[in-house]
Write a protein that binds this DNA or RNA. Structure first.
Lengths: 283, 283
DNA sequence: TCAAAAGTGTTACCAATACACCCATGG
DNA sequence: CCATGGGTGTATTGGTAACACTTTTGA
């Protein structure tokens, strides 16, 4: 598979693992009469490390990569085995592999996924000694570069909410416009005009009135909507074809692929290396 | 580092490698009196495989990952050692790791980067038996899932051109508005109103008139511009802090970080696995 | 003086905003 | 009948598309 070049053999490949940033809605932690109208906030579960380095420190849930599983499946397994949660959304975030990030441990490449779980699931999940939920704006010191990874995941969520259905993944399959509005405000971190929000959402054509109504307080009942993706198919994702061999009844639903935002970043230059006579190619 | 759980040990981790999708401007291949005004097209270099599977097949340039190098550096080394090119842009694209993609080889995780090189560099690089440039719309059969990866890179480029300076990376450090317009048309695959394009670009505030003029044909000379990023800094990228330890004089320039588009994709569910009593966490 | 490209002006339209307003409901 | 949230109307604005137009240059 392209390995075996002399200069490349000089150095063993690093370890690989999978980590997951899990996000869910929860109550506001600093409820100092919040000026903005939203009454919820993002929370995420962290696990306590049982090894050096950073022993006892909070860290992202993670696990190993298995050669017979897709990356998504490995991420799903890591997520499930550590937190018993079932995400409504799971997407690759970034792969981190800088040697400096291991801080004394062995060099480690982490393929990081981010996941969204329903509010209901998150409240059911109780904390224990080794897993605890933290509000997004009040995180403890974290192991490795996990704090940066979380910030990046949050940025991605904030970016992605503007052109995809991620917000609905934090709610159940059905929701009122006010609930959806609250999610948008919580993620954006600012208040949004409810009237315009309503119109924009309905104009998008991706919301379908279920006909049902619910009363949150004791006021007029609100219409309940469902998300129905308009079939403006984007470009097919390359990995869609290969994935999903191990489906299960409660498999989380597929999302239409769509090309979107990603973080630009600078690159560095490698120092000299022995050039192979024949270029390597690998799968 | 989080390895060592019983159920996880049952399966060895897969191999890892780096691949790079390299893009550059070139002449139009199907020049059947092109209706659209653009006269250039994207080309990319491929290398011939020297091993099974897919022996003799064209594939993306790639190489191995070294534990003492960052992912960017590994990508840069792979790019440089196979094609002798120096990218003006290099960014992580996606990590592919489905077991099915190896097609009979060992399971392989590929961390894929995409790169842009200047037109000038690309024309200087001559083909040999093992490296050849192909126009984006006339690719040969490719090894593994490399065709899908290329399509994804192209989609990312098309998306990213709308809110970043990637177009300028395909040109030199200075360019005329017409040249830039041609790049946009080549990437978008459709003609764009030159008058409006000009206004929009100038209104962005990211272009600076160098004061110089050039004549492309024998008509009125055009103003030469330079790209100067407006300091509307986005969110800092997590990896920026760690990277760039191995800088060199001709290191490609840094780009301001910015959160953008990424592809949404569906996820699968893992089958049952032995849950560890204590959640694993790794760096 | 002509062709070709550089560069400007003008209008129409659409989507997002701000905010005033009416409607439905239970207490 | 009032408080509260559900839901609608409307004027303004800013950005973009369409395209007609003027200017500059070498041949």
């Amino acid at each position: 598979m392209g390995f075996g070049n002399v200069s490349e053999r000089r150095n063993a490949p690093p370890q690989i693992g999978v980590s997951v940033v899990i996000l869910a809605l929860g109550p506001r932690s600093h409820d100092v009469r919040d000026t903005s109208a939203s009454h919820c906030q993002l929370w995420l579960p962290l696990v306590r490390r049982v090894r050096q380095p950073f022993l006892g420190c909070w860290a992202l849930p993670g696990g190993d990569l298995r050669a017979d599983r897709s990356l998504e499946q490995s991420a799903y397994m890591a997520l499930e085995s550590t937190t018993s949660l079932h995400p409504r959304y799971l997407e690759q975030l970034y792969t981190f592999g800088d040697p400096a990030r291991s801080h004394g441990g062995l060099p480690m490449v982490s393929i990081v996924y981010w996941a969204l779980v329903e509010q209901r699931e998150a409240v059911d999940a109780e904390d224990d000694d080794n897993v605890r939920w933290f509000p997004e704006d009040d995180l403890p010191p974290l192991a490795f570069d996990h704090r940066d990874i979380i910030d990046y995941a949050l940025a991605r969520l904030r970016s992605k909410i503007e052109y995809s259905d991620v917000a609905t993944r934090l709610l159940g399959p059905t929701f009122t416009l006010r609930q959806l509005h609250g999610v948008y405000e919580a993620i954006a971190g600012q208040s949004l005009d409810l009237a315009n929000f309503r119109r924009k959402m309905l104009a998008s054509g991706d919301l379908e009135d279920t006909g049902r109504k619910v009363r949150e307080g004791r006021q007029r009942p609100a219409a309940v909507y469902r998300y129905v993706p308009s079939d403006t198919l984007g470009i097919a994702s390359p990995w869609q074809g290969n994935a999903s061999t191990y489906s299960r009844q409660d498999m989380i639903e597929s999302a239409d692929s769509q090309i979107d935002h990603e973080a630009e970043h600078a690159t560095t230059h490698a120092d000299d290396a022995l050039s192979p006579l024949i270029p390597a190619a690998h799968g």
